[in-house]
Design a protein around this nucleic acid. Structure first.
Length: 154
DNA sequence: GCCAACGTTGGC
DNA sequence: GCCAACGTTGGC
């Protein structure tokens, strides 16, 4: 089982949207490095839901990968902003996954905290200038994030 | 709104 | 294949 971090602007799609919807397709990723990570995901993997362009930015919840290797349908829709004229259904360029809601953090973990706790080597997110919207999170780092989230009194 | 840090595009 | 111009991301 692997851990991931996936970004979304809450004004576009937030953890509470996912909570209401229960499950959604993570469409619209058009960056090859991010897509390559999406291709590596396995059913049952866990992903931190990161709010970008928000105040504060940070990890707001947790979700689970529920379906993998899906051709992103928006690449075939000419009216979509994610339309890719060079992609065909026979050989789709962009794959993605379905995610299902696990939990919304009562106390979100802000970017400031993440920068405090982790080095750029441990967590790609805190690397200066990083714009990747899908990235792996090492097991050890994921456990520490969950430990911050679950107080030690438990 | 500003701007740094990227990724992509396209001329050559 | 190089690289300048351009577009986008995302923190602040």
């Amino acid at each position: 089982m692997n851990y991931w971090l996936m970004k979304s602007e809450p004004e576009v799609y937030s953890i509470s949207d996912l909570e209401k919807q229960t499950e959604t397709i993570w469409d619209g990723v058009r960056n090859y490095q991010a897509r390559n990570f999406l291709r590596q995901m396995k059913i049952g993997d866990l992903a931190f839901f990161y709010h970008s362009n928000s105040n504060p930015p940070g990890i707001f919840g947790l979700m689970r990968i529920s379906k993998t290797d899906i051709a992103d349908p928006t690449q075939f829709e000419p009216t979509s902003k994610y339309y890719d004229s060079k992609s065909t259904p026979e050989s789709p360029r962009w794959q993605t996954v379905n995610v299902e809601f696990v939990e919304s953090f009562i106390q979100p973990i802000s970017l400031a905290i993440l920068k405090e706790k982790f080095t750029p080597e441990e967590l790609l997110l805190v690397r200066n200038g990083n714009r990747l919207s899908v990235m792996p999170v090492p097991e050890e780092v994921a456990q520490k994030i969950l430990a911050i989230k679950y107080p030690t009194s438990a």
